[in-house]
Write a protein that binds this DNA or RNA. Structure first.
Length: 718
DNA sequence: AGGACGGCTAC
DNA sequence: GTTTGTAGCCGTCCT
């Protein structure tokens, strides 16, 4: 026991150690690693006092280090690995032939039943397989998966049933369709939604709630290495080979090989990670962004609303199951409009949403921010499309569309950055007018013009400087013999970061380029006055200020990935994206035309019948006066009793004939309009909206310049 | 050539 | 509740 207490002194506070851990019965002890503190609480309330002899619990907060891609130094300083090593008494480099030297004989992974939970399990498997592979190869499984139910159904009289997969639940529902509705269904979203009683039930029958991870051979190690190792090419290949996996994993047996886990389950996290990190080609939206837009339209977000309120509404309306703080951050990014961010922001930023001082990291807390949809949102996402889209469902409830079809590829206006698994993406921002022009060329089967990245209000230059490489340049000019003024920074270089760069140029020991820097705010942006010796200035001028002062930044088009029909597609130019995009948009107009024509036809038929009825009444063909309503209805073949709500005069008839003429005209207009001309109408609306905001912007800038002059002038006279 | 870092949605 | 550290990829910058 002496060794036991000695060890305990340095054990982490958050550990609930098994009483027998580290003693002579340590081999019979199990350490439960939980995903988050709330799962730890569930485990603690589920374990009986007796079980606490042999079960310890330790919560993991956040993601576990991918040791396979980490440096030894990073592994050494990692808090979780330090804790785990102490708790289990692990020794690095040791080849284990049994677990007798450890404080616990096995480890249970208790992660949420969702994609990120699977990822957590994967990272833990990866950790052991990389640092202590011998443990995973022991004949008796060292790692155990804790499997909690995903769905529970209860009945007034019958015994409750649980399912650990959606597929099992669906099969159960199909088997007895008639009575399925008598049951109430509970979906567990993470371990946090299990009750204390359910926790006790899990541990009371722990054997049916676990499955063993099994090491069969080298193929297991290879699978883990592909999923977590440093070769993204292998990972891409793995995703391509396994993305057909049923997104509803089947029933879980009591054993699974590491290879099966990686290829059938971990790959689902990979796909989810791509969905949330890489936008679709069609709407340029990541899944979270799509849920935000959907909610804003659904609740008609036309009044300024606090961000914390709005983000809660997103959770409710779109079944967003992650942290609300995350949504708020995404909304903030979508609303930002400083130079270098969105060319066409859909949300209005009201409050401190961040500035180009730090790339928007200086945004205020969500509680102090308000937002609403900008009018342009309805122009880019026409309401008339709503009936033509496909929608995601959750447990039968209609959620956001699987993808929107804005009238132009939004991803080219606002760009995209994202890091998924196997793939990342970077798409620059382009001028909406260039994009519209190329769509028009595409429709007319003309060659498209190559586009150069464009950022709203950016006053520097952007030029093509290589294959798939564009360079954005800042701006500077001479003020006097020893001063250069820098007034514009290249795209993506934030003023706070540039300060550091200038200070480094000044601190450069030996012969620094810069003697001094002073920073001024000219009203709308920062200006740097750089003071340097005449000699250095001459030299810098010869070599080029932009290069010398590090005012060049590349924008590449070599990593443009977008999702299309669940698959990742690599694009090599923005024009290629437009080529993929507009045929789908045109198809939507064809559908819209068909639907509108159908609706108009039925309205016209109704009008014609009403008119005929009124004519008949007025000519005396149908007698109305002195008869029962039911008799008249019987006489009418159409049987439409609503006719009697009409005023039975010829005036009414003339009114309806006018209406009919209008509808016929609409049909005429619709028949003469093509998908192309309907598209053109929508594009024109967007263009006029662009002009409006450009006018507004230039007026704003004019006012800023004036107020700036007023504040500067008195200083000059002093 | 090799390591560190920025960008972004998640735990 | 907020802050910090982590995943994941690729291009850039620094050593």
């Amino acid at each position: 026991m002496a060794g036991n207490t000695e060890g305990r002194e340095v054990l982490p506070d958050k550990l609930e150690d098994a009483r027998q851990a580290g003693g002579k019965n340590s081999n019979r002890c199990t350490l439960i690693l939980t995903e988050g503190d709330s799962s730890k609480a569930l485990a603690m309330s589920g374990l009986t006092s007796d079980m606490r002899d042999f079960y310890g619990v330790y919560p993991i907060t956040g993601k576990v280090l991918n040791v396979r891609k980490a440096s030894p130094a990073q592994i050494n300083r990692n808090k979780f690995i330090q804790d785990l090593t102490k708790i289990l008494k692990l020794e690095l480099q040791k080849e284990y032939t049994d677990t007798s030297s450890l404080r616990y004989g096995r480890v249970i992974l208790m992660t949420d039943q969702d994609d990120d939970g699977t990822h957590m399990s994967g990272l833990l498997i990866n950790l052991f397989s990389f640092l202590w592979p011998s443990l995973l190869k022991l004949p008796s499984s060292f790692l155990i998966d804790f499997v909690t139910p995903l769905i529970k159904v209860t009945h007034e009289t019958k015994e409750a049933e649980t399912f650990s997969s959606l597929r099992e639940f669906k099969e159960w529902k199909e088997k007895d369709k008639a009575h399925a509705t008598e049951w109430s269904v509970k979906f567990y979203k993470g371990l946090g939604s299990s009750t204390v009683e359910e926790g006790m039930l899990y541990f009371n029958q722990i054997d049916i709630h676990v499955r063993e991870f099994v090491w069969e051979g080298d193929a297991d190690g290879e699978a883990i290495n592909i999923a977590f190792g440093g070769d993204p090419e292998k990972r891409k290949e793995w995703i391509r080979n396994n993305n057909q996996v049923d997104s509803l994993p089947g029933p879980r047996g009591n054993k699974i090989t590491y290879k099966e886990f990686v290829n059938n389950e971990l790959v689902l996290f990979t796909i989810a990670n791509l969905q949330r990190s890489i936008p679709t080609m069609f709407d340029g939206l990541k899944s979270g962004e799509r849920k935000i837009i959907f909610t804003a339209f659904k609740i008609d977000l036309t009044e300024l609303t606090p961000l914390d309120v709005f983000s809660s509404l997103v959770s409710q309306h779109s079944a967003y199951h992650h942290s609300r703080k995350c949504i708020s951050n995404v909304i903030i990014r979508m609303a930002q409009d400083f130079i270098g961010r969105n060319n066409v922001n859909l949300f209005e930023p009201s409050g401190q949403f961040g500035t180009s001082a730090s790339g928007g990291k200086d945004a205020a807390n969500e509680g102090y921010l308000h937002t609403k949809l900008k009018p342009v949102a309805w122009v880019l996402f026409p309401k008339a499309d709503d009936d033509l889209l496909e929608y995601n469902l959750e447990y039968g409830r209609k959620l956001e569309p699987t993808r929107y079809f804005p009238i132009i590829p939004l991803v080219l206006l606002n760009g995209a950055k994202g890091i998924g698994s196997g793939f990342s993406t970077f798409i620059p921002q382009y001028n909406p007018r260039d994009v519209i022009a190329n769509i028009r060329r595409g429709i007319k089967c003309e060659e498209m013009e190559p586009m150069v990245p464009w950022y709203r209000d950016f006053e520097g230059e952007i030029k093509k400087t290589g294959e798939g490489v564009y360079t954005s340049y800042g701006k500077c000019h001479d003020v006097n013999d020893n001063t250069v003024q820098i007034s514009v920074l290249p795209i993506g270089l934030w003023t706070d970061d540039y300060k550091k760069i200038l200070h480094a140029l000044k601190a450069n020991n030996g012969d620094p380029l810069i003697e001094d820097v002073s920073i001024h705010n000219d009203g709308s942006s920062m200006v740097f006055n750089v003071i340097l010796s005449k000699k250095h200035k001459k030299e810098a001028r010869r070599e080029g200020y932009l290069k010398k002062f590090k005012l060049e930044k590349n924008i590449t088009t070599t990593n443009m990935h977008l999702l299309m029909g669940g698959l990742i597609k690599k694009y090599h130019s923005p024009e290629e994206i437009i080529k993929d995009f507009y045929p789908h948009r045109l198809e939507l107009y064809v559908k819209r035309k068909g639907k509108t024509a159908l609706a108009l036809t039925s309205e016209i038929v109704k009008l014609q019948r009403k008119i005929q009825f009124l004519k008949d009444v007025n000519r005396g063909v149908i007698l109305v006066v002195g008869r029962l309503e039911s008799e008249i209805i019987k006489e009418l073949k159409s049987g439409d009793e609503k006719f009697l709500e009409l005023s039975l005069t010829m005036d009414q008839c003339i009114e309806l004939e006018k209406e009919l003429a209008e509808k016929n005209q609409e049909v005429g207009h619709l028949n003469s309009s093509s998908a192309e001309s309907m598209y053109e109408e929508d594009l024109k609306k967007f263009e006029s909206m662009l002009s409006e905001s450009e006018d507004l912007n230039s007026r704003k800038r004019g006012m800023m310049a004036m107020s700036c002059q007023r504040t500067v002038k008195p200083k000059k006279t002093q």
